[in-house]
Nucleic acid binder design. Structure first.
Lengths: 165, 165
DNA sequence: CGCTTCTTTCAGAAATTTGTGAAGTTAAGG
DNA sequence: CCTTAACTTCACAAATTTCTGAAAGAAGCG
């Protein structure tokens, strides 16, 4: 049997997956440590781990965990919660909502739109470059509306498929 | 008047916009030089520039232009074209299609799905972590289908708004 | 063919990013 | 309060990335 402890998981395979998944996140622009920590959390059965568990599994210092977790919390990909009656903290992935956060660029889209508006006026609304910028702006505005609707459809779809709501 | 040459553009303002737009791209995960080059191209009236023009405007070496352009070409954000009867090359943004490229993750989505499938089997389809992974996978598969439809709606919307097709 | 103009490659310098150990801070539990 | 467990911050060393100058490589043009 390839399983180590009685935890019902092949630690080797899980670790490989964690690292490979983290690599994808890195490629998508996430810093290395946050990516590894996030992948580890996502692969945990509880969906949450303590700082010590993370440092232990990933072989990184408490400082690295701290930095990674700060990043993840700021970008709303994990939440921190205090273990009652202990100075231990748990970091948790919002179960099925993390990828919603990924697409829920809300604020991000707004910043892009604002930057593009600046562009249109810097370039001149009546120039070819300005028009190109205006069209890009229109695309983002369009996206803005579509994303919300798309996520609504997903929740519907998920409920039908998983019964999870 | 704040315009310098007779080119009808406030070079200062345009440059500021180029740098600020590039900064957004960097934040979104694009390397610095490609981002700056891309922003410059996007802000040009012709939608295309030569290597020399780019190096000149951005104050970077030919080597840097070369590297940036290679990146952009590989990711399909610009195309290279030879100026007929010259060894000069022009780099061009695909007008209104660059942001389609941004969303047209096609291959990217497939890679994620494949990684997630690995995850489900590494974690065990019957474990909590495995189920979480399976649901994420379902989300990406869902996205896959939605993105195409969304872009179709955009083209429709664009035609109505800009008459550009 | 060789000259010339442009682009690419490459090795290395410079800057940036990353992760650590160690000291510092906070808060639980006596 | 004091002790101690846990997390955070900070300065720095190490690794990585980024950009350049220089040299080599194409390709038009005579």
């Amino acid at each position: 049997m390839t399983e180590s402890a009685g935890n019902g998981r092949d630690a080797e395979a899980v670790s490989r997956f964690v690292e490979s998944f983290a690599a994808h996140l890195v490629e998508a622009g996430m810093p290395r440590m946050p990516a590894r920590v996030f992948a580890a959390l996502l692969s945990s059965d509880e969906g949450s781990m303590t700082s010590a568990e993370l440092g232990d599994q990933l072989r990184i210092s408490p400082a690295a965990v701290s930095g990674a977790v700060r990043y993840l919390a700021q970008t709303h990909m994990v939440s921190r919660e205090r273990e009652p009656g202990s100075r231990r903290e748990r970091y948790r992935v919002h179960g099925e909502q993390w990828y919603e956060a990924l697409t829920n660029r809300e604020a991000v889209l707004k910043r892009w739109e604002s930057a593009l508006r600046d562009g249109v006026s810097s370039l001149g609304a009546d120039t070819p470059a300005g028009r190109r910028m205006a069209e890009t702006l229109a695309f983002f505005e369009f996206l803005d509306g579509e994303v919300a609707a798309l996520m609504a459809r997903w929740r519907e779809h998920r409920k039908k498929t998983f019964g999870t709501d």
